[in-house]
Write a protein that binds this DNA or RNA. Sequence first.
DNA 1: AGTGAAAAACAATGGCG
DNA 2: CGCCATTGTTTTTCACT
Lengths: 155, 155
Amino acid sequence: MPLDGFDRKILAALQEKGDTGPADLAPIVGLSASQISRRLQQLRKDGVLRAIRASLSPEALNIGIGAYVMLTMTSTDPGAAQAFRDQICAMDEILECQMLTGSPDMILKLATRDLASLNDLLSNHLLAAPEVATARTSIILQEVKSTSAQPLRFV
Amino acid sequence: MPLDGFDRKILAALQEKGDTGPADLAPIVGLSASQISRRLQQLRKDGVLRAIRASLSPEALNIGIGAYVMLTMTSTDPGAAQAFRDQICAMDEILECQMLTGSPDMILKLATRDLASLNDLLSNHLLAAPEVATARTSIILQEVKSTSAQPLRFV
DNA sequence: AGTGAAAAACAATGGCG
DNA sequence: CGCCATTGTTTTTCACT
């Protein structure tokens, strides 16, 4: 399952516009629609092409605040840590949660309606957990760049 | 352009699986395919449904390292700051760049092949810029959660 | 590996209840 | 808003190079 230049072009186009069909892809990639179709099936089967997702406007959904929360954790037993992670996964305002090297131990990306709901989320759900030692919250002032497109230069 | 419960269901389904057509959406939403089709056009026209994008497997693209970089900036003239932001937008290993309240001033999310390419990116491109005062890099050890799905509870 | 044409599936539109 | 039929387009498949 090595990816060649044609696959690269297909993937690049799909990261930009995921609802491009084989017919529209053909002139971009320089391949017939039928071959694109065949390669798309293969890329899906190989797990390279994982999913197609809609990107929605936060403003239209009354999401006015984006924020990062840097957490340091208390050392608890693995079971409690897992329970905390499960809780995080169940909260839909938490878009991202990553465990990190060094300090902080964990970073969270949040999307909420306003400062009041951000405060509620922090106070009543995050800081309330005994697993959390400290939390530093930074609100997003300006979005310089935000893409879901992975770099393709390493293929 | 108020969004009702049907729109919410359409958007929720599309955030999960963006290539679902009206025919497949119909039973999920509880609406006929023709109505779904009309609502989709409206949602696109209103800018609620912004784009459809493919999500690719980082592993398949030889992306072995994810990292966050927290930057504090030197106070420079606006022109230099803008040039720095343009440079960031042009780097495809930088997935995200947000200006924050407090300290750090800026956070970056990176995707690179390995530690060597991460080091190269930091040393030769980020730290080389005079706009950067300090940089703290944290490598992602474990992905607990990562979604592009915005919360729909505020609509 | 790739092309091109036929076959099948699907989305979009309009009319009517 | 559901239902239905129609139309146009697109994907998919197959025979062939």
